[in-house]
């Protein structure tokens, strides 16, 4: 791919930092596709990163997460803050394609220039989805957005990882009994800074809040502070309380910002290493790779053996 001339890139970075929407959109594309220019852009904006507050929302499909984020954005907008959203959707493991549909609804904020929404598919990213997401968050941050919201479907490990990129993580669930809320127990409750029982106008909402509180009570003292809120996203009921709770959590944990910084840097390094490994594999060991493919597919070697051979080759070069 042809790299644009350096002056073009510099001018582009200026527009990005100046808050031009197209520049941000295109910069995200560069990061997502692993374009060479992305590294230059990311390096250049590092000094401008760290002003946005990053809020993660995670929760199973059907809990009304998108509608809740929509309502949360409404509150932030009323408070005069601008919001950028990175909505992460799963992609098909077979085709790599994705339907990016379970996203914040555009209807309401469709005409609002104070809101920027970008869908990210979870397809094979260099260095993992969390690295890409961290970079997207950095771009949004550097482009001057006050709040950055990360939306993920809370079902797997990578989602937990992404949620950890946030200053404040909100875990959303819907009213249910027993098994219904078991789903959020495994791993995901631990990352919650704020817990929300959405659809609080439905049956069992009160009981679900109680159950979550007792589940939290069983955990470490640090969890004691995790507020459990009930909201009705469709009508916006108590979403302002949620916004205030998020702000309060942010103030309670000033160190979180530093933690995010560290996590982000870590993700960046991992990303860079993966990139370099990829390049070296392709450029220096392409023939070896082809050869190994044949040997694995005819059963002579297994995949682990092949990895060992390649790592050894990389060590030597």
């Amino acid at each position: 791919m042809n790299r644009p001339p350096a002056t073009r890139i510099e001018e582009f970075i200026g527009r990005l930092r100046g808050g031009e929407r197209f520049a941000l959109a295109r910069a995200i594309t560069l990061v997502e596709t692993g374009a060479a220019t992305a590294v230059t852009v990311l390096n250049a904006i590092q000094s401008g990163v760290g002003n946005a507050r990053v809020i993660g929302f995670t929760g199973a499909p059907g809990v009304g997460k998108s509608t809740l984020i929509n309502a949360y954005i409404r509150v932030l907008r009323q408070r005069g803050q601008t919001v950028a959203v990175a909505a992460v959707d799963p992609s098909s493991p077979i085709s790599g394609g994705a339907i990016l549909g379970d996203r914040v609804r555009m209807g309401e904020h469709g005409g609002d220039d104070g809101v920027f929404i970008r869908s990210i598919s979870s397809r094979g990213h260099l260095g993992g989805l969390s690295a890409t997401t961290a970079q997207v968050v950095d771009l949004m941050d550097a482009a001057g957005w006050d709040r950055v919201v990360i939306e993920t479907v809370g079902t797997g490990q990578s989602e937990v990882e992404i949620a950890r990129l946030a200053d404040v993580s909100v875990v959303v669930c819907a009213p249910g009994f027993g098994d219904d809320i078991q789903a959020i127990k495994a791993g995901i409750l631990e990352i919650a800074d704020v817990l929300v029982v959405n659809k609080a106008d439905q049956a069992f909402a009160e009981q679900t809040c109680q159950q979550l509180k007792s589940m939290l009570g069983l955990r470490t003292a640090a969890c004691d502070a995790v507020p459990v809120l009930a909201t009705v996203a469709t009508t916006g009921q108590d979403v302002d309380r949620l916004a205030s709770a998020i702000d309060a959590r942010y103030r309670e944990h000033p160190s979180d910002h530093h933690t995010r910084e560290t996590r982000r840097t870590r993700a960046l390094i991992v990303h860079a290493v993966c990139r370099e490994m990829h390049r070296r594999l392709a450029d220096e060991h392409g023939d070896k790779l082809d050869d190994l493919c044949v040997r694995v597919s005819c059963g002579e070697l297994n995949v682990d053996d092949a990895v060992g051979v390649l790592l050894a080759a990389l060590d030597r070069s």
């Binding site: 929407r21 197209f22 941000l24 959109a25 295109r26 995200i28 594309t29 992609s91 098909s92 077979i94 085709s95 790599g96 394609g97 994705a98 339907i99 990016l100 549909g101 996203r103 609804r105 555009m106 209807g107 469709g110 005409g111 220039d113 920027f116 929404i117 970008r118 869908s119 598919s121 397809r123």
Partner: peptide, 30 residues
């Protein structure tokens, strides 16, 4: 669904979009 199966990333919206929303979406989603 067919475009997804062909390996594309499909940004799919609910119906009833405003024109301004489509423009904004096309821009932000690149």
């Amino acid at each position: 669904a067919h475009l997804r199966d062909a390996g594309m990333e499909v940004v799919y919206t609910p119906p009833w979009q405003e024109i301004s929303a489509v423009v904004k979406l096309a821009l932000e989603e690149d």
